[in-house]
């Protein structure tokens, strides 16, 4: 009996942990989407492409400039975030007065461009990116499973960054401005806050979050041009389920759905790819605004 249970656990534990790792990425990506949407009212379809760029920049930094993982973890989000700022200034900023769907179409086009360029430059097969050996210290080796230290780190890093983002938005002055500008941009502008610049920086920050997730993902998934597209549609479903009203909501939903996906892989593997979408359908039927959404 107990042996049986242990065996079940041995089967289940790695998948559940893998789900948690996926959840870490869902959380980071949906957090960035939610921040951008809150401030700019734009669904950033290029989020997956920017996630992929983060991974590629990390790879380039290592291969071409010899900058290791830790440097990339800081530099890649900054570089890709700067790219995001450029995009917001030159393109997205022109669309604020139009239907929000144009923002979706524009960023969809950008995603095609970015992914196409990387596919031309690097091909469709992935590039390897080895995690630093230091993470072996975090390896968890217990009777029911072996867990590579790097994956432990991904979950920790994601939780920390999500927490830090939440703190910045809820507890600092700049976060207060941000929340105010999300609700009433004209009024905040009347108080002398430069709202257009805040929008630019918000977009840059959201993109930087995606790139950060990309660097985290580089050692786990092979660095390839399609890695973002595979993630982003699931993340959209996560965003619909969580609702975009709250920061914590998107983080909790992200981790939760990652876990559920992992569990599905154990108990009903055929459904693992679709379980998130099924949950989305159920949530839409019962709470159309999303679990944490308002209105």
């Amino acid at each position: 009996m107990i042996e049986n249970l242990l065996f079940e656990l041995e089967m289940a534990a790695p998948q559940v942990i893998l789900g948690l790792v996926n959840g870490a990425f869902y959380a980071l990506l949906s957090l960035g989407l939610a921040i951008i949407f809150g401030m700019l009212n734009v669904i950033n379809f290029a989020h997956g492409a920017q996630f992929m760029m983060g991974a590629f920049v990390a790879w380039m930094l290592l291969a071409w400039a010899g900058i290791p993982y830790w440097g990339a973890l800081i530099l890649a989000p900054l570089l890709v975030g700067a790219f995001g700022v450029l995009i917001e200034r030159t393109m997205i900023a022109r669309l604020y007065k139009l239907d929000h769907l144009y923002g979706l179409l524009l960023t969809f086009g950008l995603a095609l461009i970015i992914e196409g360029i990387f596919r031309n430059g690097f091909g469709s097969s992935g590039l390897p990116y080895a995690p630093p050996a230091a993470f072996n210290a975090l390896n968890i080796d217990i009777p029911i499973m072996f867990l590579p230290g790097y994956r432990v780190w991904v979950v920790i890093a994601s939780v920390l960054v999500c927490l830090a983002t939440w703190l910045v938005i809820e507890k600092t002055k700049i976060g207060a401005y941000l929340r105010a500008a999300t609700e009433r941009p004209e009024l905040v502008q009347a108080f002398g806050v430069n709202v257009p610049r805040m929008m630019t920086l918000t977009y840059g920050a959201g993109v930087a979050l995606a790139a950060f997730a990309g660097v985290l993902a580089a050692p786990i998934y092979s660095v390839n041009p399609a890695m973002g597209a595979n993630f982003i549609i699931t993340v959209f479903a996560v965003v619909v389920i969580g609702g975009m009203g709250s920061i914590m909501g998107s983080v909790v939903t992200g981790f939760g759905l990652g876990l559920i996906e992992g569990l599905a892989r154990v108990f009903y593997p055929e459904a693992s790819a679709t379980v998130v979408f099924v949950i989305m359908a159920i949530v839409l039927l019962t709470r159309p605004a999303g679990l944490f959404g308002r209105g």
Binding site: F37, I43, H100, L101, L104, I233, T234, F236, A237, V239, V240, E270, A273, T274, V276, F277, V278, M280, A281, L284, L285, P288
Partner: peptide, 28 residues
Amino acid sequence: WLAIRRSGIYFAMITLAMAQMVYFFCLQ
């Protein structure tokens, strides 16, 4: 029936996600 519960951007995201589910169905 599911997607018309929301409008605008959400409608686009829901239809995208449901279509992806159909894709996975066709894959399997």
